[in-house]
Design a protein around this nucleic acid. Structure first.
Length: 424
RNA sequence: GGAGGGAUGGGUGAGUGGCUGAAACCACCAGUUUGCUAAACUGACGAACGGGUAACUGUUCCGCGGGUUCGAAUCCCGCUCCCUCCGCCA
C-alpha cells in the first residue's frame, strides 16, 4: 500500500512511474486525491465540532459541581443540538476513509527507475548469465522420467494420497530434499541470516500484512473452521513477525531465514508447464527476509542477489538473472530479480528464485517502523527472496547431471546426502 | 470439548462516570555528578491523523464493534484473543 502523503506530494511522478506497469493510475489517483481533500475538510470540521463539544461537556461538569443547575441545563440542550451534526459528519468522514482505503489497496507499488517498461515476461532484461549448459545426448530424459527410473519422486502415489501436485519423495529423492534444505539453511546462516521455524499456517491479519489478502485470496488454501491459511511462502509468517513493530533506532539491519513447505492452489495451469516438478501445490523453500533502513535497502538487495548467485554457483547449475519489467512484476514489488536455471532435457529456463525490494509498500500495511535520529517514526523497507525453492532445482540437477552411470550429485551436496550418485 | 479468570503506554500495574492521555514503579533516552563502570540526582519519555513554514495546536485511541450519557478506560450489549484448571492428544 502506498502512503497517502506520498500520493499527495508526488502525484505526477507516481502516475508516470506506474505507466511502466501498463497501469494508468491517473483516474484512480485523482479520485483518491479528490476524496482525500474532501476528507481533510470534513475531518477538520468534525475536529472543531468535537473540540467545542468537549469544552461544553467540561463546563457542564463544573456548573453541576458548583450547583449552577440552570446554566448546566442550557448548555446541555445546546450540546444535544450539536450531536446531530456530529453524527452526520462522523458518518461522512468514516465513509470517506473506507473509500480511500479501498482505492489505496488497488494501487500497485511504483517500480524503481531501473525497472524496464514492458508487458510480459518477454520484456524482462537478462542482466547476468553464468555456468555452461551441458551437452546431453539426444535421449536425455526429462526429470519426471528420471524420477520414475530411480524411484525418487512418486507423482501418482501423491495423487492417491492427496491429489495432483502433491508428490511423494522416496528414498534418495527424499534424502536429496533434506540435503538441499540443510545446505540452503547453512549457507544462509553463514551469510548472517538468523534461522526461524515459523508456523505453516497463518491468521487473516498476517495475510493482509504481507499483501496476500485481499488480492490473492483464491491462491491460498483456507482452513474454514479455524479461519486460517496455509502459507504460500515463508515470507508471510517471517515478515509478519515484525508487524506492528517500531524499531527503537535507525541503525538496524534484520536478516532472517526459514525453511517451510509452501502451499499454493495455482488454479488454471495445465499442460507440459505443470509436468513433474515444474509446478506443485506443495513444495519446499528456504526464504531469506530482510528489514532495512531506506538508505540501505538497495545495498541489501545486491547482497541478497550475490547470495543466491553463490548458491547456484556452488550447485554448478547454469543460470541467468532477469530484471523483471514493469508488466511482469508482482503487485507489491518495487524491483524484482528472477533467477532461472536451465533445464537441459526440457530445454527451457525454470524460475527458481525471485528476489524483491518492496521498499515501504509492505511496511506500510505491516506498520513496521523505526525511530529516526530526529525522534520521528518512519517506515522501514522490506525485502525477500527465495534461497532457494527446491523443486525446479531438483529438476535441473537431475536432468543436467544425468550420465550413463546415473545422476551425479554436486560436490557441495555430497556431505549432506551421504551419497554421490543416484544409480539405483 | 467443559469450568473459571483476564485484556490499560516498551514492561509491571493503579484507576470513584467529569480534575485521567492516563498514578506509581521498572526499562529506554538526554543531562549533572563521579578517575572508569556502577550508583545517585535532574529532565524528557505512547501512537495515528488534521491544521500550521514553524513554535505550536485540535481530534482520536485504555482488545475490537455497538449502546447509555451533556460527558465513558470506568456503566450496558455483542465479538475476538489470551491465560489457568479439567478432558482429549503428540
Amino acid at each position: 500500500m502506498l502512503e497517502i502523503q506520498r500520493i499527495r506530494k508526488d502525484r505526477d511522478a507516481l502516475v508516470e512511474g506506474l505507466k511502466k506497469r501498463n497501469f494508468d493510475a491517473a483516474p484512480l489517483i485523482d479520485t483518491l486525491l479528490e476524496k482525500d481533500s474532501l476528507w481533510r475538510n470534513k475531518k477538520t470540521e468534525l475536529d472543531e465540532l468535537l473540540s467545542e463539544m468537549n469544552s461544553i461537556a467540561k463546563q457542564i461538569g463544573e456548573f453541576f459541581k458548583s450547583g449552577k443547575k440552570e446554566e448546566a441545563e442550557v448548555l446541555r440542550t445546546q450540546s444535544l443540538a450539536m450531536k446531530e451534526s456530529e453524527q452526520e459528519l462522523r458518518a461522512m468522514v468514516n465513509a470517506l476513509e473506507s473509500e480511500i482505503q479501498e482505492l489505496l489497496y488497488q494501487i500497485p507499488n511504483v517500480p524503481k527507475a531501473i525497472v524496464p517498461p514492458g508487458k510480459s515476461d518477454k520484456d524482462n532484461e537478462t542482466v547476468f548469465e553464468a555456468g555452461s549448459i551441458p551437452n546431453l545426448s539426444e535421449d536425455a530424459l526429462p526429470h519426471w522420467e528420471i524420477c520414475a527410473k530411480y524411484d525418487l519422486i512418486d507423482f501418482e502415489l501423491g495423487v492417491k494420497v492427496t491429489g495432483a501436485g502433491f508428490p511423494i519423495y522416496k528414498g534418495k529423492g527424499a534424502k536429496l530434499q533434506r540435503a538441499l534444505i540443510n545446505f540452503f539453511l547453512d549457507e544462509a546462516e553463514k551469510a548472517g541470516y538468523r534461522e526461524f521455524i515459523p508456523p505453516h499456517v497463518v491468521n487473516q491479519a498476517s495475510g493482509y500484512g504481507t499483501g496476500q489478502l485481499p488480492d490473492k485470496e483464491g491462491q491460498m488454501y483456507h482452513i474454514g473452521v479455524d479461519d486460517l491459511y496455509l502459507i504460500p511462502t515463508a515470507e508471510v509468517p517471517l515478515t509478519n513477525i515484525y508487524r506492528d513493530v517500531i524499531l527503537p533506532n535507525e541503525d538496524f539491519s534484520i536478516k532472517i531465514t526459514g525453511y517451510t513447505p509452501c502451499f499454493r492452489r495455482e488454479a488454471g495451469s495445465y499442460g507440459k508447464d505443470v509436468r513433474g516438478l515444474n509446478r506443485l501445490h506443495q513444495f519446499d523453500k528456504v526464504e531469506i527476509v530482510r528489514f532495512e533502513h531506506p538508505d540501505r535497502s538497495e545495498q541489501a538487495h545486491e547482497e541478497m542477489i550475490e547470495h543466491v548467485k553463490g548458491l547456484l554457483n556452488k550447485l554448478n547449475l547454469p543460470y541467468r538473472i532477469l530484471r523483471l519489467c514493469g508488466g511482469d512484476m508482482g503487485f507489491t514489488s518495487a524491483l524484482t530479480y528472477d533467477f532461472e536455471v536451465y533445464s537441459t532435457a526440457q530445454k527451457r529456463w525454470l524460475e527458481v528464485s525471485s528476489v524483491s525490494n518492496f521498499e515501504t509498500f509492505q511496511a506500510n500495511r505491516l506498520k513496521l517502523r523505526f525511530k529516526g535520529a530526529d525522534g520521528k517514526t518512519q517506515l522501514a523497507h522490506t525485502l525477500n527472496g527465495s534461497a532457494l525453492a527446491l523443486p525446479r532445482i531438483v529438476a535441473a540437477l537431475l536432468e543436467n547431471n544425468q550420465t550413463e552411470a546415473g545422476v551425479v550429485i554436486p560436490e557441495v551436496l555430497r556431505p549432506y546426502c551421504g551419497f554421490d550418485i543416484i544409480n539405483a
